[in-house]
Design a protein around this nucleic acid. Structure first.
Lengths: 225, 225
DNA sequence: CGGTTCTTTGACGTGCATCAAATCCTGTGG
DNA sequence: CCACAGGATTTGATGCACGTCAAAGAACCG
């Protein structure tokens, strides 16, 4: 993987700045071909089963990738934020749906454009591998952690991903978190209540932020209660 | 519980011909650079945290990709078989461990070789995307399915992956399946017992095969490839 | 305001984990 | 060939973590 050094520089910290539309390597031709998209919350970017003919980058906002069973059970595969790329597929059809969480602006790059650009293809490969690593981490969470550990790890990971801010931006609902962690909303709520009780976080305020009161407790070198 | 036909509703993961060493596109130069590797069962191909400087293809046999928590809890991320490729990484370090299940022969292609071959890079991208799709499917299983549904889906998916044979090759232990499905070995055993009782499968015989007695029950009509 | 939707909290039920013991399997040695 | 030991699987009994049900707040919006 020659690109390793490139990938590393393209992915500074934990999560890459992989949004091709924001990447410095994007040529003028590509920037011209990239369409802009502004959506309100709760809108569908694409649905499972439709043709995957473009890749999306998040300029600002948040997106949930989801999958459903026939009886309505839902799994949130990932929450994505500014700078993340999504929508690529191995077989030309989306296996997942993507929906916005709050107002979101996206850029859309058709596959026809991507296929002609080596740098973008390398970025896509890196993005797919980073998402695979994240999906595998999440499998450990879903398969082997208790309810409280899941809630705790979710906040901890999110805090690192968002750059260790003093307030976590949480555009999603409690039920969405539950669908991500394999829990019922009531159970997520109880986990958050416990973290509030022990002084790790503050109350989830009205405009969608959770204050981080004790970062040391949110991110110990690696332990679980 | 839920009708078996609906369990299948989520789209099965796509699986490519991904083993670069077996791929027709591999040039003579690459075949020369690819090293051969023969391992017995229970051996480690690579461990989490080590440098990811090569990609592996399975010529024959089976491999489990695993991840562990500090206290020993284990998650099997994926079972891989002949033709599958693994070992690539987004950041130059393995985030998972790979161990053989029974005698296995591998080919090993150093990253330095891969980086110079566009066809191989494209294969790697496809492999990463196919694995991502599979990992996402598995998230639905881990997050939203009952114990019996997990066992059923595991056998059903494996049957399709292996080409709908009359006997399923099962080189792994019950405990490994449990670590893959987020269940205890006792629970996996009860699931298999139920499928045996209702005539879907036969008894797991001594040399590691499970006969498929009623394919229609194992794969009810609904999902296509 | 009143209706709607979401979150929180409490009380209760259940599916799977846990614990325990019987059985089977495999290799080793007599 | 049988005897035996160690490990894996199976089966049963019990307990608990989380799901489910229910109802009471909050936030939002006309």
């Amino acid at each position: 993987m020659q690109a390793l050094s490139e990938i590393r520089s393209a992915r500074p910290a934990v999560r890459g700045r992989l949004c091709a539309c924001l990447d410095a390597s994007a040529t003028g031709r590509i920037q011209a071909a990239a369409g802009d998209l502004r959506l309100n919350g709760g809108e569908t970017v694409y649905a499972a089963g439709t043709a995957a003919d473009a890749v999306f980058g998040i300029r600002q906002g948040a997106v949930a990738l989801t999958n459903r069973l026939a009886d309505g059970r839902r799994q949130v595969l990932a929450f994505l934020f500014g700078g993340d790329t999504f929508g690529f597929s191995a077989d030309g059809t989306h296996g997942d749906s993507a929906e916005t969480l709050g107002g979101t602006s996206l850029c859309r790059i058709p596959c026809s454009v991507i296929d002609q650009d080596r740098a973008l293809l390398a970025n896509l490969r890196a993005a797919a591998q980073a998402m695979l690593a994240a999906a595998w981490q999440h499998q450990v969470l879903l398969g082997r952690m208790t309810a409280f550990e899941r809630v705790y790890r979710f906040l901890s990971d999110l805090w690192v991903r968002l750059g260790r801010p003093t307030e976590l931006h949480m555009p999603m609902k409690v039920a969405d978190i539950g669908d991500h962690l394999g829990l019922r909303p009531e159970t997520v709520s109880r986990g958050l209540a416990r973290l509030r009780r022990d002084g790790t976080i503050g109350p989830w305020n009205a405009d969608g932020f959770i204050p981080v009161i004790d970062p040391g407790r949110l991110f110990p070198p690696r332990a679980a209660a």
